[in-house]
């Protein structure tokens, strides 16, 4: 008897129980057609688009940070990265709301140039970036740390600046890790609720006018229509987001 395996698999199973239960009841006894109706798909589309955009921003803006942290171990910077993940997410929603409100000088400036975060796609994406970027950085940092630094040191010895070394030596063969990091960040964004329930409960912009992000929609359905609608909607969302997690595995392989 391999006890290690027994313990490991038991707890993995326990972790998966809620999902199995959801799948069973959502497709079976509690199946409610509104849970796979057009509103749900609009909502999932909004979630996929906004999470995808957030993942793109994560890649462009935060890959350098992950690399920098990997090559310059610094506890202060590393802890700073952790802050957005370690505080309750509704607080991030509140904070972004305050920033963009007329109370703050930044907010007044944003309003004067027509930038609005509340109930907008922009606000939604920004909130998702704030919560997913630390996850992205944490998934990329070990990859950069595991790279042999010799080629980078050679490039710098030849006179390449650290930025040049990063773009010309490190990035060209990092695409697989970047893609899998982006997918991890995207799944994190898809599951976000706390911050966006405050900042973007629904979006008031075309092509998603009046549409709520999927996690918020499940909560709405639960309060309006009860358990059945919430469960069936959840199954639809799982069916969309699990392939994403599987894709991460496939990209990482090789």
């Amino acid at each position: 008897m391999n006890w290690l395996r027994a313990i490991a698999l038991t707890f993995l199973f326990l972790l998966l129980v809620p999902i199995v239960v959801l799948l069973f009841y959502g497709l079976g006894p509690l199946r409610t057609p509104i849970g796979y109706g057009p509103e749900v798909f609009r909502s999932i589309a909004l979630s996929l688009v906004s999470s995808g955009l957030a993942a793109v921003v994560d890649v462009v803006a935060f890959t350098p940070l992950a690399y920098y942290l990997a090559r310059n171990r610094n506890r202060v910077t590393e802890s700073l990265v952790d802050i957005p993940v370690s505080i309750p997410h509704p607080i991030i929603g509140v904070a972004l709301l305050v920033i963009s409100s007329p109370i703050t000088p930044v907010g007044r400036f944003m309003i004067s140039v027509g930038i609005n975060l509340f109930n907008s796609i922009l606000g939604l994406v920004i909130a998702l970036v704030v919560v997913s970027a630390p996850i992205y950085v944490k998934s990329m940092q070990p990859y950069f740390e595991s790279r042999d630094p010799s080629p980078e040191q050679f490039a710098m010895g030849l006179g390449a600046s650290p930025l040049r070394t990063f773009t010309a030596v490190v990035l060209p063969d990092s695409s697989r890790s970047v893609i899998s990091g982006a997918l991890i960040a995207m799944s994190r964004s898809l599951s976000e609720f706390g911050s966006i329930a405050i900042l973007a409960y629904y979006v008031l912009q075309s092509p998603f006018f009046g549409v709520s992000p999927a996690a918020v929609l499940i909560y709405q359905y639960y309060s309006y229509f009860g358990l059945g609608a919430a469960v069936t909607t959840s199954v639809t969302l799982i069916a969309i987001s699990v392939p994403l997690a599987v894709a991460v595995r496939f990209v990482r392989r090789e």
Binding site: P151, F154, V169, P172, D173
Partner: peptide
């Protein structure tokens, strides 16, 4: 510049 057996830029 320092050259080691692993210095080459693989890409």
């Amino acid at each position: 510049v320092l050259v080691t057996p692993d210095s080459s830029i693989p890409s």
